[in-house]
Design a binder for these strands. Structure first.
Lengths: 243, 243
DNA sequence: GAGTGGTCTAGACCACCAG
DNA sequence: TGGTGGTCTAGACCACTCT
């Protein structure tokens, strides 16, 4: 059994601060205590505090003014789903305020087409597991997802029930793989035939399609996903930095 | 006149490393020198090196393995346009390999509708400058953009020619404002009427629409933008982190 | 001038990976 | 076992803002 080592101090501090920011007590005028004060309060060094604040700043929770202070960003409140965070779909829907459920559409072994094979650093026609799932928000279809895993990665037999659980769990359990990074392309799409039926939308309705390749800690591609999102249920946001 | 202070060491180091990574010399087997080695080579502390490497890791250029080393991420090469980087459109098109040109479609003062007024923390019907521009990639329409600036921010008269230049330049010159952050929503859209004409696409073609609010260093909203991208010219990527 | 965040350093100890 | 990246500290100096 693997023990949970304590999380780095900066992450613990960031988590504490996130909670404190949501209940906006102890902050007067949207301003946080100074770095030395926070360091004293948490009993850590200023460097650790700065690391925690840098995380919150990247998330858009706070902003900082040199010579003045650190402030709560009130404009961050409207945000629904941050695209940089690769969440389970069910979790995503839950955070957006819906009840989430999963419906397995199809699961089968098929040879990889050239485009996906290339993205997975694999030969064309290598057999792979294709899992098609529908995610319901309050019982209405919201997300349709096709996951593709090369069959050679799968090390133990699985049941149909297990395919309905998050694909990341499946990768952990049956492939002994953990996803660290996900590269995604953002593509606008028109619903057609199969999609209109599955997602129950009118023909010619716009959707967001994400084409994703998931990598493990060795930076090897282990999963390809093609995901369609209905804008009515999930709208992604992103904090862009001027360069 | 304002002098350019030297950039932070970590940023200079990151810039050097980016160049070195593109020409893949001096790296054997995709592995970078160790942190102490890099610190010695650049003549800076290990902390500064780690800060630079953290930037490159967030950009997806490298990945790191505890106890093993720092490696070049060969999968980062396919990337076109990173959505986290808020670039000028012309620069974006140029990086995607096109010749970029700008066409002013319309500029006028109009009262703010409620939705945009709310995003800009302003009262409905406040007068604002609406600038509509078309960005051409190799002389074909690729991006259509509507910029909205509250009129009260504009402090000096401007010419039509200046409206054709990047809006960030306009904000600097005539509003004395600099954009630091941009909050964006990613929305799938179907081209209709005006859009099909301006972007020269078939009706019912899918587009990416970004709805953006730009903030200055005091975190005050100063600009609203509604931007339509043709997927054939610009496709956004994002590096997502498993949470 | 006092206080804030921004930069940078040197040093320590640890967990992890490889031979 | 030696080298790697990961964490954490204390301290210094600077640039900036506010009053």
């Amino acid at each position: 059994m693997q023990l949970n080592r304590p999380a780095p101090l900066a992450i613990q501090v960031a988590k504490s601060l996130r909670k404190l920011l949501q209940r906006s007590e102890y902050i007067t005028g949207g301003r946080l205590p100074s770095e030395p004060e926070l360091a004293a309060q948490f009993g850590v060094s200023r460097g650790t505090i700065r690391e925690a604040l840098a995380m919150l700043e990247r998330e858009g929770m706070i902003f900082r003014r040199h010579g003045s202070g650190t402030y709560v960003n009130k404009h961050a409140l409207r945000i629904q789903a941050r695209i940089e965070a690769a969440l389970e779909f069910s979790e995503l829907l839950r955070q957006a305020g819906f009840d989430a459920s999963i419906q397995l559409v199809q699961a089968e072994i098929e040879p990889l087409p050239p485009d996906i094979a290339s993205l997975l650093d694999t030969d064309t026609d290598t057999p792979a597991l294709f899992v098609k799932k529908l995610f319901l928000a309050d019982d209405q279809p919201a997300i349709y997802c096709i996951d593709v895993i090369p069959e050679r990665l799968i090390q133990s037999p699985y049941t149909e029930e297990e395919l309905q659980r998050p694909i990341f769990d499946f990768l952990k359990t049956h492939c002994n793989e953990s996803v660290v990074n996900v590269w995604a392309e953002i593509i606008p799409e028109i619903a057609e035939e199969e999609l209109t039926r599955l997602l129950e939308v009118d023909p010619c309705k716009p959707l967001i399609r994400l084409e994703e390749v998931s990598f493990n800690s060795l930076n090897l591609p282990i999963l390809f996903s093609r995901v369609y999102y209905k804008d009515q249920f999930i709208r992604f946001s992103v904090l862009r930095k001027k360069v």
